[in-house]
Write a protein that binds this DNA or RNA. Sequence first.
DNA 1: CGTTTATGGATACTGATACTATCCGTCGTA
DNA 2: TACGACGGATAGTATCAGTATCCATAAACG
Lengths: 207, 207
Amino acid sequence: MRIGELSKATGIPVPTIKYYLREGLLAPGELTSPNQASYGEVHIRRLRLIRALVDLAQVPVAQVKEIVESLDADDIPLHDQIGRAHRALTPARKPTASPEARAAAAVEVDALLTRRGWTVEPEAPALATLIETVAALRTLGQDNLVAFLDAYAEAVERFTQLEVEAVAAPTRDQLAESVVIGTILGETLITSMRLLAQESTSANLWR
Amino acid sequence: MRIGELSKATGIPVPTIKYYLREGLLAPGELTSPNQASYGEVHIRRLRLIRALVDLAQVPVAQVKEIVESLDADDIPLHDQIGRAHRALTPARKPTASPEARAAAAVEVDALLTRRGWTVEPEAPALATLIETVAALRTLGQDNLVAFLDAYAEAVERFTQLEVEAVAAPTRDQLAESVVIGTILGETLITSMRLLAQESTSANLWR
DNA sequence: CGTTTATGGATACTGATACTATCCGTCGTA
DNA sequence: TACGACGGATAGTATCAGTATCCATAAACG
């Protein structure tokens, strides 16, 4: 398959495919001559993944690169592969909260993790985001929401349990891909469902 | 309070505040003379909200504008206010799936909504995203995840229920603000918690 | 009372991101 | 053997989220 056919097969313009190649999101095709390469099913598959992440899940291209790199690094433990993908998914956010608010939130979050028995490394980027969010909620006067942290955590555990049950991939490669897709598209799924459920509830309560 | 003090009170640089004023995210201060304005508590509060949405929840500035506009439009029903905010939160996504895949997913999602008894308008942007996501999951070969749609929906209902319980605001204005903050920061909360729960689970299973 | 600093308002510039477009020399096919 | 497609490189574009600069005026300080 040449690049034109790859483009037709995926609906992605040739210049965009070239861009993904340049950025290292897509492995180069096998060169059959100095200026002729051939692409296969793998490339179609990968492009579909890229598009889902970029268009649907709005993951920045640089992050998609890290994610596919972690997928291709099948020589490291699965847990580390997932860790790499997780790191790519949590953007570095400018600190919003005051140091005091953050410190208080950190204590609170720490207690939550202990209660739930979640063992995470202290440098996990998602941890910083959670702390920052709790601090922001308090600063914005939404203490009532913070009071439900444990209930939130319980519902979140349900998702994670579902996703573990859902991954039933035959090979190690496919397992990793399954987990990563589940993590990312699962979030889009949850977000859109949540909006719909809210709309329905809001219609019942306030209209 | 003048703009310099506002800047000091919030930690936001003066040029950035001016930018938010230009973009209409922040109401202008009361003019005491042709080139002197005074700002109050409302402005501090609003800036904190803007920063939480922009920095923490990564909502684009244009969308934040629509959200604060919907908050200020307290002359329309609460349900419509929330609808406006919801619309601002669902970015227009380029269609990813093939027409056939989308049509199949649409049927599936429709059945789900009926089963759950969710009543949403057919033009809800989140609906399109959900359909697109289901189609993408199928195209990417993640049918096993799609099989858990109902379980996902159930867990999502749990969140919505929590959030309804959590909003206990005295006034109509504060109710709207509470719902909007809950919707947006609640998502950041869920996302970061989910990542942490996954990391913990992944450590237990695969390390 | 004069000088320095801050302010509101307008306009211009910047850096990052995600593509698009163009060019060039080569290659495969008709 | 002509002609469009290709690989590879470089340059250009649009959008976004601020920053920076300028101006005339107002406030604060000595």
